[in-house]
Every structure is written in structure tokens, then in C-alpha cells.
Design a binder for these strands. Structure first.
Lengths: 183, 183
DNA sequence: AAATTTATGTCAGCCATGTTGACATATCTT
DNA sequence: AAGATATGTCAACATGGCTGACATAAATTT
């Protein structure tokens, strides 16, 4: 009954003199709250799509590929590898399925015929749009509480959370080509 | 040279009349930008910890367990399962390692001697503190650009992104017991 | 007191998605 | 012609999800 546990987050951040060599933030300054909010927010954010993807026999990996191919039509395989930061073998597996099942098509590059430029098919657009719709609904509900100015603040915060050294082609586009990155 | 691809995100969201049955947000209203920012921000956010965890032979799963046990001392195994939304078999694997290697200890519940209440050891506190330090550094860098008022906006946004139906014990605590949830 | 339910642990095996290493092919560059 | 690059593929392995079955101890119910 008493439920002695769950006595709220530790009042004294590091009772036992632990927390040896903390990143660089000193004890007591740690952003525990935001760390947890990010965990839960992201979990539920991707959870929307995860559920729907099951019905298609796809997973999160397929979603990521389809998303970026849709958003950046003509993306090269090499660029996709950069963005997703996975190996070509991992990508190959999911990409093959998306190709076989007609969600994505490849076109041979005009300049460089070795390249395979990727495009979402109408079928692929439909799926990625449905998933984005669900995620947008969640974002819109959250945005309704903070207004347009707040939305810009959130955008600013999220952009500042992203590593900007060695940006891939997508990040270059997002950040308006601040850095040239590898060609 | 010409690099014909990467011609920026599709100007017309759904050229081919695709996007059948979008979530509920209509085409054109989709929050593509925020969806992508969340992806990249979260990737780099957890990337910090991932890198460090490798040196300990641990993965993201261990981090999550250690984090919540540290933050909510005396957490029951059942509560942890609720929070992480994984099966007890999956939890068992990583929890066993954390116990064996002395990052976490179990204490038998006082009221209910079937329960195993979990606590981080000083060793565990040290690791989780180090990881939180790195993540805090990143958050602080981002916060520096939006100020204290902006930080509150971000907190509000993230909270609103989280599902509030059927909250687990941790979310109950975070949201100040808005809902009683299951006892 | 006996029966049942609950909290936890554990064995065995499957699946998705990440990894490394090796190697093949076509095409572009030198 | 030789070498570098873009892509694909085979094989094997690791992590961390999953299901199903079953065991134990302790609490609760009958």
C-alpha cells in the first residue's frame, strides 16, 4: 500500500560523492528533465509511425529510407548512406525490399551512369505521406500550446542540437549550405 | 559536376496525386521540417552517449535502464518495464549485466518481499552522470541560443509531444500526477 | 489451510537491423 | 590500359527487440 518507492527524483543529485568525471557540466547542473522529455517525446513521436508500418511489414529503417528519398528526390545511394549513417549492407537490405515492392524506383544517373538515383513512387509517396500525417498531427497538437513564435524557438533549439561539423547533403540543405562538405 | 540531384525538397509536396489517406493533416500542411529536425537532433543527442557506452561494452538499452534507476531510486522491475515498454526478457538481459557488473543493486521490498527495488551504485551513478554530462553540454549549447524563456517553451513543446493516456509511474511523476494510472 | 494470483526470473528460439570483411561489376578518371 | 569510384552482394556475427513456456516465492483470496 504505502508504495515507498517512487519517492520522486533524487533530491540530492549525487549523494554518494559519485558522478566522477562528468561530461563537462558540473553536478547539479545536469538537464535531467530535458533529457527525459526528449526520450519520451521521441519515443511517442516515432511510435505513431511504427504502429502503422507494421501493417506493411516494414520497420523504422524502411521509414527513414522512404522519408529521405521522398524529401530529396534523386538522392544517390551514397548520400543516403551518409545521412542514415549505416553501412551499405544494412541499407541494401531495406532498400531492396522497398524497390521490390514498388515504393521506390532507381534511375541511372545522367552524368555518372554508375549512380542510382532514388525516387519514391506514388505508392511510396502515399505511405510516407500517411506516416508524416500522423506525426504532423502530434506536432500540431504540441505547437497549438506554444504558438508560432514558440514554434520558431523549438526549430531553433532543434537545429542547435544537431552536429554541424561534417554535414551530409541533407543537413547542408537544411542549414542552407553553411559548409560545403565533401563533394 | 553538375550534381543534378539534391535539388532541394520537392517544391510541390505531392506532384503525382499521391499522399492518399494522409494521417489527418492535409497535404501541404505536413511538418516535414520539424520531423527531420527531430530525427537529426535525437540522433546526435543519443550519439553522444552511444559512443561513450561502447567503452564499457554497453549499449543504449543499458543506458536507459541505468538512467531511470538512477533518477527514480527504488524503482520496481515492473515499473521499469512500463517505462521502457519492453518485455521482461529483454530487460532481464541488460539488467543482469548491470547487476553483475555492479552498476545497479537490488533490495527486497519491505512491504512486498516479492519486489526487487532497484538502485544505482556509486559506480552506476558515475557512469550515468558522465553520460548525462555529455548530453547536458549539448542541451546547454542549444539553450544558449534561445534563452530561459525559450527553454520553457521547448519544455512545454516536448511535454505536449508525449502521450498522456495510460502514463507509467515516471510520467506520472513528471506530469505531477495528472492521472492516477494503474496502481 | 488450500488455492490462486502476482512479481520476478529464466530457458529457448525467432526477427529486425546494425556490424565487418571480402569480393564482383560497371563506369568514370587518369 | 590502369586505377579509382559507385553500387551490389555473400557470409557471418552482435544487439536488443519479440513470443511462449515454465519455475519460484510471496501475497492474496477463498
Amino acid at each position: 500500500m504505502a508504495d515507498i518507492n517512487f519517492s520522486r527524483p533524487a533530491a540530492q543529485p549525487d549523494s554518494r560523492g559519485a558522478e566522477v568525471s562528468p561530461g563537462s557540466a558540473r553536478a547539479g547542473e545536469l538537464r535531467w528533465d530535458i533529457i527525459e522529455l526528449l526520450f519520451f517525446a521521441y519515443r511517442d513521436f516515432v511510435g505513431d509511425a511504427d504502429h502503422e508500418l507494421e501493417a506493411f511489414g516494414f520497420g523504422r529503417a524502411h521509414h527513414r529510407v522512404l522519408h529521405f528519398v521522398h524529401r530529396y528526390p534523386g538522392l544517390k545511394v551514397a548520400d543516403l548512406l551518409d545521412v542514415l549513417r549505416i553501412t551499405k549492407q544494412s541499407l541494401g537490405r531495406v532498400l531492396k525490399q522497398l524497390l521490390d515492392e514498388g515504393y521506390i524506383i532507381q534511375k541511372t544517373g545522367n552524368n555518372d551512369r554508375r549512380q542510382r538515383l532514388l525516387y519514391a513512387t506514388p505508392k511510396g509517396e502515399a505511405l510516407v505521406g500517411k506516416l508524416a500525417g500522423m506525426q504532423t498531427d502530434r506536432i500540431n497538437r504540441a505547437i497549438a500550446e506554444i504558438g508560432p513564435a514558440g514554434t520558431e524557438t523549438v526549430r531553433q533549439f532543434l537545429r542547435a542540437m544537431i552536429d554541424r561539423d561534417d554535414p551530409d547533403k541533407v543537413l547542408e540543405t537544411i542549414f542552407g549550405s553553411g559548409k560545403p562538405a565533401k563533394t
